[in-house]
Design a protein around this nucleic acid. Sequence first.
RNA 1: GCCCAGGUGGUGGAAUUGGUAUACACGCACGACUUAAAAUCGUGUCUCUAACGGGAUGCGGGUUCGACUCCCGCCCUGGGCACCA
Length: 836
Amino acid sequence: MKKYDHKKIEKKWAKDWEEKGIYKTSEDSDKEKFYILDMFPYPSGAGLHVGHPKGYIATDIFARVKRMKGFNVLHPMGWDAFGLPAENFALKNKEHPRTSTEKNIATFKEQLGKLGFSYDWDREINTTDPKFYKWTQWAFIQMFKKGLAYESYEPINWCPSCKTGLANEDLENGRCERCDSEIEKKPMRQWVLKITDYAERLLQDLDKLPNWDKSIKEMQRNWIGKSEGARIKFQIKDLEKEIEVFTTRPDTLFGATYMVLSPEHKLVEELKDQIKNWEEVEKYQKESQKKSEIDRLDLTKEKTGVQLKGISAINPAVVRSEGFRANNEEIPIFIADYVLSSYGTGAIMAVPAHDERDNEFAIKYNLPITQVISSQTDEENKVYTGDGELVNSAQFDGLSSEEAKQKITEFVGGKLTTNYRLQDWVFSRQRYWGEPIPIIHCEKCGAVPIPEEELPIELPDVKNYEPTGTGESPLAGIDEWVNTACPKCGGEGKRETNTMPQWAGSSWYYLRYIDPKNDKELISKDKDKYWSPVDFYVGGAEHATRHLIYARFWHKFLFDIGVLNYDEPFERLQHVGLILAEDGRKMSKRWGNVINPDEIVEIFGADSMRVYEMFMGPFSQSGSWSTNGLVGARRFLEKIWKISENLTKTSLQSKEVRPNISDRKCFRKEDSKSGEDLIRELHKTIKKVEEDIEEFKLNTAVSSMMKLVNVIEENPKPSVGQKKNISKESFEVFLKILAPFAPHITEEIWNQLGHTNSIHLEEWPKYDAKLAKDDTYMIAIQVNGKIRSEVEIKAGTSEKDLEKVVLADEKIQKWIGENKVKKTIYVENKLFSIVI
RNA sequence: GCCCAGGUGGUGGAAUUGGUAUACACGCACGACUUAAAAUCGUGUCUCUAACGGGAUGCGGGUUCGACUCCCGCCCUGGGCACCA
């Protein structure tokens, strides 16, 4: 018997497929299209580990099935190659990010090449390719022209010792991870995209996406964070200044007993001369800069704040209610870090009777707590955050919260508004390795976009990747590049030296695969019409909010300016769970627990790895790698190899016409004595595998095929001396459903069985619905919810007939005894329950 | 802390979505083959009990003839929290 030599087989067929180009996508628009996409990888220097391909394997299986079902499939791959690691690598090793990136891509591509993926590499894209980022820059210019890109001073984390901006991830307890210096917030001129203009649509259109994971939609809803409320202005006493607050509870306005500004609020600076305890205030502002938003919002941490002494605000509702002027008309103003400048107006009215945080703060600083919504509990100082009937609210007493929200807002000249937690997107980085922002600054004309015909603005080479010390990008040091003419007036201009964030290219890359060579436009109308949207998008759950919201935003924008025909990019979305190392931690160089797929492919073969990764567990769940577990997948393939060996020995003499798989005759009874059972099992398996793949339950698809193989092995041989336990035709049907999972071994066996075409170009087998069902069932019999016996029935037995059999059952009679049967319940073909 | 997932044998997991809990696989034990080992094949493998039976799906309660599944309250683990990719 020949050995299952995976190395030889896998190499042979990988070469063959490439030569024949069997996975090339066509533009044949008569066929129905299917666009299935993986989130493209960042080609890091570390290469692939066994976790990366999990999602790629699953989409590859799906793509292969769709091809077999006759779809024109687009299944491409590319590289998200701008980003910080390449730049840091360049800093250390003085190697241009372009060269290190190219090397990494080559490594990734070689590794992926061993895993049997059916990508159409003619459509490969790379975000760092000027031909690609020309269109990233083009899209930015369109946004600029529509007023969606603007400049603003935004705070960044600044390390005064490294003289560079830092990501939140590079911080450790508010200190620089590298040099341990304390971080400052430094305002930096930034380009910002007005994604908030799209907040409502991004939220509403989630309803158009029934085939997205519910949890991801929920996370996006919360990220967008819509809340209805009002903006209300509070006068500062004796001064010509106002504080505007956003509140979701204007109905509780009479209960506002103090106000809080975020420490960064610009009024604080403006009121410097009136604030008597300025030193204390300034100190608090500095302290709060060090805290992250997460710390500031932590409900378990004790609230802190400082009163702005010397000034106070007037509660507009109280002051306007004649005869109601109590001592709570004038209220103190605080700054406290539990109020964020990025949310609402950066200022709140505090209602300690009806808000948890305000309540905690009020108790700590001994501030009055005025109940204005009646609640069931009469407990003093108890927070009640629900709606209810107004009390202590002058002429509004007795109204419901809902009515009062509108009436009180009106009464004080406020405005009912909607607020979103979503913030505008800071879209510039003071880095080298990113897309140059195509803007020229002119003293006369301001920020001027570069004329479209001059795109792309290529990233120039720099001598030095070191931070400039001013926080500007290394590009700022290249005078001959920076200094240029203003495209509008021809006068002196300076190029924008900020680059785009790594998210830019990934916000629209999926469109480029559709039309990768188009030099005239981002995408041609016809191709967009045929291929869009992406039918199925698979990737990590860590992208649930940012990447997926950014991409939806760009897509909607491109739709609005007429580039695209539909306003949602991804029809179906599925997230992939991580593969952790055997020790349960993330795979990382740092822990020394990385498993390289090259080794696995070498020892066990790509097919075994593919089958194992799908079999590990539910696709979206993370789990630990186990090389032991992989052995099971390998054994499964070896069993199949063995069955095929027996087949080729004994059955090749029977020359068959190509079987018509929908014809039940092709599963011949002569398979064996129990051929009928085997045929049923085969049809059940086709059905199960097909349905499971559609639902992305790839683990149970594999297990059902394993079951079938066990049945084939157990199946008695038809006669002495003959080793065949399944007919060639039936086995070939099985091979076809296995082919998407294990493309190499199935192709090899298919070839050995005498076929000259590729199994991957075969049609997906159709199952016979009648044969995919059992003809007898075991019915469990319960008495008062406990299983007491079981009976076998033929399919189609009526409930009445079954009841007779059940009640005649000795064991059941014993359990019923003298009791009366109150009720019976029949679950078809499963269970019969008796209640006594 | 907030948002989103998840918790089932020694291990990864299955369970037609309220209907026989532990499919499939790994591991382990015993047996067959072998001079021997590996590989392969076969048998067994949640737990208590001599048995009849009983108990188990993170913990505590509830709804139901019936709960891994639904509801309430806890505990633990993972992902995200806006400059990681």
